[in-house]
Design a protein around this nucleic acid. Structure first.
Lengths: 194, 194
DNA sequence: ACCGTTAGATACATGTCCGTATCTTAAGGC
DNA sequence: GCCTTAAGATACGGACATGTATCTAACGGT
């Protein structure tokens, strides 16, 4: 029989990645050390080194696990405005830690590796898949709520870009007022200029 | 007579702060160590400790010295579009290093101190002074190029928010195309929806 | 039940930074 | 020229992280 006190293989791996994520959230990239992660995971450094020789390998694996983990639900309420507000709210709830982290904590990593946030995001997002706001706009067009014209991705994803900026500036979740203002004062007026 | 090989007082202090700035730019907050800064300044750690007991004291002093430096010129060409594009270009040239740094490298510092980027910026910007884009819009209204209606600061400063986001995402200066697209596809259409 | 694999503990040498203490010597005021 | 001040060099113990090596014991497959 097995005492099941010792994890192996995939089970151990996800435990480590979860611990690494927790450390990253709490202590940032600076605190993201093999030492701290191994302690947090209840294992020892050699176990980590066997899987990820470089610290950055472990970092990417950690991000990859939590990026694909929870897709942000895109609401489908039948109203463009409600969809947009609901989606931003979901983004806020689901990605606060991630966004704060990625947008900001990791700049040291980007410097060191010569990449940037956009490249990392693009490499993890399956190509050809529409963004949340693209989906929302498509549906609104299908309902006849919006004119069927070509729109720049810059316009479509505007709320997301503004969200990221706001998060960076405040280091906090955004407020409900900020969300409605973004949709009502900025995005919807812009979408209707056709 | 004096050999002047040994700096003292204010002269030494600014030399240290300049060295600290250089280190911060090159190596980020992680590399912002007393050791590295002292070496860069050609002095020794005890000299730094006598002035700034904590690392953050030195950081704030370093930022303060380089923050107030240069106001960004706001062009006045007689065209809303040209003003906006020119201003964004000036922002890009003048603040790339600073923005990248402040917006991003310093998140560890913000975490530690419980402040955020917006508070730091507001504390250093004189209150009541209109932003660059507010000035640009005011002039356009005065010329009759824009309707004289109340506009949300969110709308007015939109290009700046997008600029900050773009800078963060790419860690590079923005492209000329990005600037014109931001103004022509996003900002100007939004301003004209009245 | 055996055996190959591998988790996990421990140890080691190395390197970097910390914070402080000590000592010298150059600078500047009088 | 003397004397106070402070720069700058050096040393120290400690903390923490690195990367590797070695050993044991638990696990999983057959």
């Amino acid at each position: 029989m097995s005492l099941n006190t010792r994890r192996r293989g995939a089970e151990l791996e996800v435990a480590i990645l979860d611990a690494a994520w927790a450390v990253l959230i709490e202590s940032g990239y600076t605190g993201f050390t093999f030492e701290a992660i191994a302690a947090r995971a209840g294992t020892s450094r050699p176990v980590l080194y066997r899987r990820w020789p470089q610290r950055d390998d472990l970092l990417v694996a950690t991000l990859r696990r939590h990026w694909a983990a929870k897709p942000i639900p895109v609401p489908d309420t039948g109203s463009l405005r409600d969809d947009a507000i609901g989606f931003l709210r979901n983004v806020d709830q689901g990605r606060t830690g991630l966004m704060t982290l990625i947008s900001a904590q990791l700049v040291e990593y980007f410097r060191a590796t010569g990449t940037n946030f956009r490249e990392l995001r693009d490499s993890m997002r399956p190509p050809g898949q529409p963004t949340g706001f693209a989906t929302i706009v498509q549906r609104a067009v299908a309902r006849g709520e919006l004119a069927d014209v070509v729109r720049s991705p810059r316009v479509i994803d505007l709320p997301f870009d503004l969200f990221r900026n706001e998060m960076l500036m405040t280091m906090r979740p955004v407020t409900a007022d900020w969300i409605t203002e973004t949709i009502d004062v900025v995005w919807l007026p812009l979408l209707h200029t056709t």
